[in-house]
């Protein structure tokens, strides 16, 4: 995998396009074929890369200015004409500034508007808390009828964008700033909304990760393997609907689970997984990695992920702790699960 070098990951001189660029490109290709697709932004066409759509299809592109709530309302209205609007802005504005519009105009009214929220988590590290977004998964999961996806890299983002167009109702796709290294080598892999991707099989412990943290989970698993620890890694790109079967299977097989997300530990992936575990009634050693009810400090993204324990080092530490944790296992575990 690509390594952090200097100030940021060296993606700009890599062979791979960034997460944001590739979705801009893929969306444009979709738009050229599918005349229902319209694209909107709120003065972030360049930053979110949805501007690529404008270059090719200006008649179906709308920049509403810095007015995120209005962007959502306009997109909702456009669906009356049979259109499928794709809107893009920073996660913090899509999920919080425009929250009530997303909930009332999209979810309540079942409008097929697709939101591509960039700069999520602390990916815009130096911009500080106003531009970080560690709450969106919790907010969006709580809206009835919303589908929530956090792709791990550019290729997964491309697959998610393609898949969301004909997926019923509103969809929230959460990506980073766009400088994250790739997890996959191409777009050629099995991707299905609501279906976790198993990346490493393991019997000792399972790490369930989403978004950029998936890459770190894989690295942590590979490092753990060198010490004889068998770590299962699940890429849980869809938070809602959650692949509950994959969680239950991990519980059955490994009985130790860690969740990792570039998000608050309140209401995101960790809570979604904990909910599934709790409903099984089974004992389990469990740890949620994320921001522990705190706003992040300012800094370079990779520094922040490291300092808050969300990179491979932090995950490896957590693996060591959770492997030592005790829990109550019952005898007829396999029969009941």
């Amino acid at each position: 995998m690509a390594k952090a070098q200097g100030l940021t990951w060296t993606v700009l001189d890599a062979d791979h396009m960034t997460q944001a660029e590739i979705y801009g490109e893929v969306l444009t290709q979709i738009g050229l074929k599918d005349r229902r697709v319209v694209a909107l932004t709120a003065d972030l066409a360049k930053s979110t890369k949805i501007g690529k759509f404008e270059e090719k299809i200006p008649e179906r592109f709308f920049n509403v200015g810095i007015a995120e709530a209005n962007m959502i309302a306009i997109a909702a209205g456009m669906t009356e004409a049979g259109l499928v609007p794709v809107v893009s802005t920073f996660a913090t504005f899509a999920s919080m500034r425009a929250a009530e519009f997303v909930r009332t105009d999209l979810c309540y009214q079942k409008r097929p508007v697709k939101i591509i929220a960039t700069h999520s988590g602390t990916s815009f590290g130096q911009a500080g808390t106003t531009h970080h977004c560690t709450e969106d998964l919790a907010i969006m999961r709580s809206f009835a009828g919303m589908t929530v996806i956090a792709p791990a890299d550019a290729y997964e983002t491309a697959r998610a964008v393609s898949a969301c167009i004909d997926w019923p109702g509103p969809v929230y796709i959460r990506i980073g700033r766009g400088f994250e290294p790739p997890l996959h080598r191409s777009m050629d892999f099995d991707f299905e909304i609501g279906k976790a991707i198993p990346l490493r099989d393991g019997r000792d412990i399972t790490v369930i990760a989403t978004g950029v943290c998936v890459l770190h989970a894989v690295e942590a698993a590979d490092r753990a393997a060198q010490n004889g620890v068998s770590v299962r890694v699940l890429d849980m790109h869809t938070l809602k609907p959650l692949d509950e079967e994959a969680v239950r299977q991990a519980l059955l097989d490994t009985r130790r689970i860690i969740t990792v997300e570039d998000h608050s530990v309140i209401g995101g992936l960790g809570d979604a997984v904990a909910d599934v575990i709790a409903r099984t009634g089974k004992g389990c050693a469990f740890r949620k990695l994320g921001y522990q009810d705190t706003f992040s400090k300012v800094g370079y993204y990779e520094d922040l992920l490291h300092d808050y324990g969300l990179d491979a080092d932090g995950i490896l530490d957590a693996i060591g702790q959770v492997l030592k944790a005790e829990f109550e296992a019952d005898e007829d575990w396999e029969d009941e699960i």
């Binding site: 306009i74 909702a76 209205g77 456009m78 004409a81 049979g82």
Partner: peptide
Amino acid sequence: GLGVGAALGA
């Protein structure tokens, strides 16, 4: 806003 969207959509 919904109305502007509907009209632009049309």
